[in-house]
Design a protein around this nucleic acid. Structure first.
Length: 415
DNA sequence: TCTGGGGTCCTAGGACCC
DNA sequence: TCTGGGGTCCTAGGACCC
């Protein structure tokens, strides 16, 4: 009893961040185990799928075979050693690692393993926040046994639960993951990165100074390229330097909200709950062309792609059971300049024709003098069909009983 | 050899209403 | 005729994340 009482009390909340190790690449290695240990990059298209030779061995595409505009979605740790990372253009990566093996992205497979690993975690700890295909937050605060010390280790119970989660994931998927456990999401996200791959990192409040403050500011989830560059220009490189800065000065530099958040984050403070359910805000489809298209010269092709995106979006909406009142259009021009237009209708729609009509009206508000690199369509203001109208859309309904008259059919000739 | 696709959230200005 | 402030909605752009 005396031993337990003398150890530091566990925090009220114990939050885990679990990140699958090189997820897409690791799923591919389950299929092609002979690639284990090699530099492998995921990001190609179908044509880069391995081919079966007469003798039963496989022939893989190499990074040097790639032409086009794709980026790396994941690379194995061996490929990262060659300097190729996710987000990097495949053509650029091919210059650095021409002999790295290239595999096409197979989202269906990754989604399958995503479901498997999340279900495996849920068997141990059910309070889970989805953060995409390969990572989750888990609220471990009330997991049985987690606050039990083991021997002289007050965190023994926490370690045991972490190991149990990792074992459960490994059993279900044959994949490894890394886990960070701390009193909040912000710190856990950083902790899960500290011992990758296949690691467990526990970090409590009294260790912020020694383990968090020396880190680069970009390690904070929420400080991206822009804020990182601005901090660097102000002579701030580490999280500890943010923590040492006058909060009023941070607010003067970054605005009230972000400046205050920077101060809090640098001290490891974060009270955001683990959110186990959320509704989508918008659903979209977009595509980048193999070559930039011209609004006039490539009109037929653009029109076809535009219609196809609307049809895919309608299919997505139906499958997920949503309709939406705000239709958005996105165009990216040569030079990467991006423009969006949106239009809010009086009533939600979900069918391809209505989406296409509204997006077409948006298109008429964009000058099309430059070549187009990307075209996208989005549906926002989502609701479920048959659901009671929201107060706001009821107000609109009352005001204008007439349904919106879209543009005349001839105007669809644009594109 | 630049820079995918699918998202969320924030800001800021103008319209409109009370 | 001028002058307010608050609140909500819509739109456009941008930062950031996986």
């Amino acid at each position: 009893m005396a031993e337990v009482a003398s150890s530091a009390p566990l925090p009220e909340r114990l939050i885990a961040h679990l990140d699958m190790d090189a997820f897409y690449a690791s799923v591919e290695l389950l299929r092609y185990p002979e690639l284990k240990g090699q530099a492998v990059v995921v990001g190609g298209r179908r044509i880069h799928a391995p081919r079966l030779r007469e003798d039963g061995t496989r022939e893989y595409s190499k990074l040097r075979d790639y032409t086009g505009r794709g980026v790396i979605t994941t690379s194995t740790y061996a490929a990262r050693d060659l300097g190729v990372f996710s987000g990097m253009g495949l053509m650029k990566a091919a210059l650095r690692a021409p002999d790295a093996i290239l595999l096409p992205t197979d989202f269906d497979a990754y989604r399958h393993y995503s479901r498997l690993f999340k279900a495996a975690v849920a068997e141990v700890a059910p309070v889970i926040e989805d953060r995409g295909i390969d990572e989750i937050y888990i609220d471990l605060s009330d997991v049985p046994g987690i606050r039990e010390p083991v021997g002289h280790d007050p965190l023994g119970g926490v370690r045991a639960v972490a190991r149990e989660i990792k074992n459960s994931v490994l059993r279900a998927t044959r994949l490894t993951c890394s886990i960070g456990i701390t009193p909040n999401k912000l710190l856990s996200k950083m902790a899960s990165e500290m011992d990758k791959p296949d690691g467990i990192t526990l970090l409590m409040a009294h260790e912020i100074e020694s383990r968090i403050w020396p880190l680069d500011v970009r390690k904070i989830n929420g400080i991206g390229p822009k804020a990182g560059a601005k901090l660097a220009a102000l002579g701030i490189e580490t999280i500890g330097q943010i923590a040492a800065a006058d909060p009023q000065w941070l607010i003067a530099q970054f605005g009230k909200s972000y400046g205050h958040w920077l101060h809090e984050a640098s001290h490891g403070r974060d009270s955001r709950p683990v959110v186990t359910h959320s509704e989508p805000v918008s659903i979209s489809r977009e595509t980048t062309f193999e070559r930039d298209l011209h609004a006039v010269h490539d009109r037929a092709q653009l029109s076809e792609i535009f219609t196809r995106l609307c049809q895919q979006l309608a299919t997505d909406l139906e499958r997920k059971g949503y309709e939406g009142r705000t239709i958005g259009l996105k165009l990216r021009f040569e030079g990467f300049h991006t423009v969006t237009r949106d239009l809010t209708l009086d009533a939600p729609v979900a069918d391809a024709v209505s989406i296409r009509r509204a997006a077409g009206a948006c298109l008429k508000r964009v000058p099309l003098d430059k070549r187009i690199r990307l075209l996208g369509v989005r549906v926002g203001n989502l609701s479920r069909p048959g659901e009671a109208l929201s107060a706001s859309s009821q107000a609109v309904k009352r005001k204008q009983q007439q349904p919106a008259s879209g543009p005349a059919p001839e105007s669809l000739a644009l594109f």
